[in-house]
Design a protein around this nucleic acid. Structure first.
Lengths: 198, 198, 198, 198
DNA sequence: AATGAATGAGGTTTCATTCAT
DNA sequence: AATGAATGAAACCTCATTCAT
């Protein structure tokens, strides 16, 4: 007797997520080119062939990983956007949220970084990854301008402040991974925000 | 014919440097895995075979590129170390020097970044790249501590300050490359150093 | 419940024949290697797995298709053999029958052709397909010899005549398929037989 | 010291032709799908990789084989066209030429047949193969019409005659291959032309 | 010193077939 | 009887590297 439609769907959903998570990890560590489908299959405990029932190609799998990450971040930002508070409070929550995200899913940050820095990745996927960064920066900038209007953020060029703030977050996200000596150091949110203080 | 031998050696040195520069560019854009020896040969205007007269393998070539970058940065840092001035003046010069370097040789930054984030690169080479970062951080930290003693740098945990400052530089170096919207923005040295101000 | 068993058997027979017909079509268009079991399953409206309840393998399925075609042609030839008339009348009926068959079931002709010309098909199946041709040729030859004895067929080497006549039929069968310009042309039976006329 | 430009070119030309000839043989026996690049490499006595320095893909190789065959046939037909004689003499020479060609390069005939009969072959290549047949048929038709005007060919529909004549040739070309019993039979040119006689 | 023809290992992807349900 | 998820064996193709000239 065939499995019920529902049971099948559940199996498929679960498998898909499983592959997606494993792939994020492997892509994060090796990048698109050096990540082997066999690595992902082995780490998922399935055969290589099965991956192709869920994703059309290795590149398609990477795209799905990034779209997934993008989705989660955007959802989080959207929630933050809707919360009340002064601009500075919002900046504080945003910074905490980003920092927390980097700590919990470092793979996401690294997949995106790999994708952005390698021209070998198809432009379409890179565009997706760029959107990931751009959306974040746009939100940073909004809050910075609000903060300036409220007198809580220094009156400098908002573009410059956004770039500095964003770069700091990005540098922290990537640096912590491979600088063992500093991986224990936990910079305080307040200190990060120092760069925006009047 | 010593003259001819000398000339030969000069040709060899010249060619070696040429390959090294081209390779830095290509490794920076694609990473180790996706950079093709044929790309490098073509861009250098020589045959594939000839590259192997200068470098034993593709990995060896990457190592040479990184060693070269490392060498240049360390030399620069050493010069800065020997110059006189207050700690803050030194920090200013250091920041300007790093920023200038990133702007002039972005390829170096990216080769190192590629190497650091990809586990597919042989550990030996990654260790070299890590040294690149570590040496810089060590210098940052020295100056920060000196600055604290001179009352010019905020009295916070030096490790934390070093990480923040280093991450900011690193984030600026990588971010500017692919964030077109912000590639024109020129953050001021003073503002970068804001993060260390008392 | 004998009734249900009987019904079951009927369903099975029906389904088997359905798969066989679909497979003939697909094998005819793509050949053994490029015909996908999934194509056949989809076109039959059943799952891939189910095909294996009816046929042990893709090759086995091809064999059944050819055996089926062979069976139908041989039955037809047998009927012709038993009909009365002069040798020439029989040749006329044979030619009309073959031509009609090609027109109505072009897939059969093409499956057989695919099988005959591809060494990639297992020898056992090719032998079956060859038998298809051989049996026809044997019948052609019989009638040609009879015709010669009756003075209705030219007195040339019967082998040569058989080959020419058979090749003509075969050429017509395959050629018409892909020569669009000539697919409308309907050669008359008399003209085909011209090659055997005294 | 590098090889001279000329020597290199010679090596390349020879290799290319060698691969082309071997490939014709293998494609003729197995068709595009079942012909293995490894088969062709082994039969050519070279590595698989080398084939890709001469032909971009397996399909591209098939295309080259067919273009090559097409080229040779068209050249031959052109020469025949320019020779003097009555229409019937020309038809005789044409038939002899085609028959001779089939006997000497049966592989060409079969590659073309494989290509025409399999929908799995890319349409672009099939179009090339169709051109092979069409050009021949066009020439057949020309001579048949001329023959009719000269009273040497029966006054039937030229299309019908062309189809019959072409099918006969085609059937002979393919049939002889796998009908062992008849492979020794050598039909006379005169007898083949019988189908066009008044 | 220099070239580029040649090799061969290894990766992605496809699909016939099996098997749990 | 029926499904479709899962497997695994090839096959195509790409390159780093070697080597004859």
């Amino acid at each position: 007797m065939p499995r019920s439609e529902q049971a099948n769907q559940q199996i498929r959903d679960e498998r898909r997520r499983q592959i997606l998570n494993v792939a994020a990890e492997i892509f994060a560590r090796k990048g698109l080119a050096e990540a082997r489908i066999s690595d992902i299959a082995a780490a998922s405990g399935i055969s290589q062939g099965l991956i192709y029932r869920y994703f059309a190609s290795k590149e398609e799998l990477l795209r799905a990983v990034i779209a997934n990450a993008l989705d989660q971040v955007l959802t989080g930002l959207q929630e933050l956007r809707e919360q009340p508070g002064t601009p500075w409070e919002k900046l504080y929550r945003l910074t905490a949220y980003m920092w927390e995200g980097m700590r919990r899913r470092p793979a996401y940050v690294h997949v995106v970084l790999h994708t952005l820095i390698s021209e070998a990745v198809p432009e379409e996927i890179r565009a997706l990854a760029r959107r990931y960064v751009r959306e974040s920066y746009t939100f940073f900038r909004e809050l910075i301008v609000e903060g300036q209007q409220a007198g809580q953020v220094v009156l400098a060029d908002p573009e410059e402040l956004t770039l500095l703030y964003g770069s700091l977050l990005q540098g922290l996200a990537t640096g912590a991974w491979f600088m063992d000596d500093y991986s224990e150091v936990q910079p305080s949110i307040e200190r990060m925000l120092r760069i925006l203080k009047p």
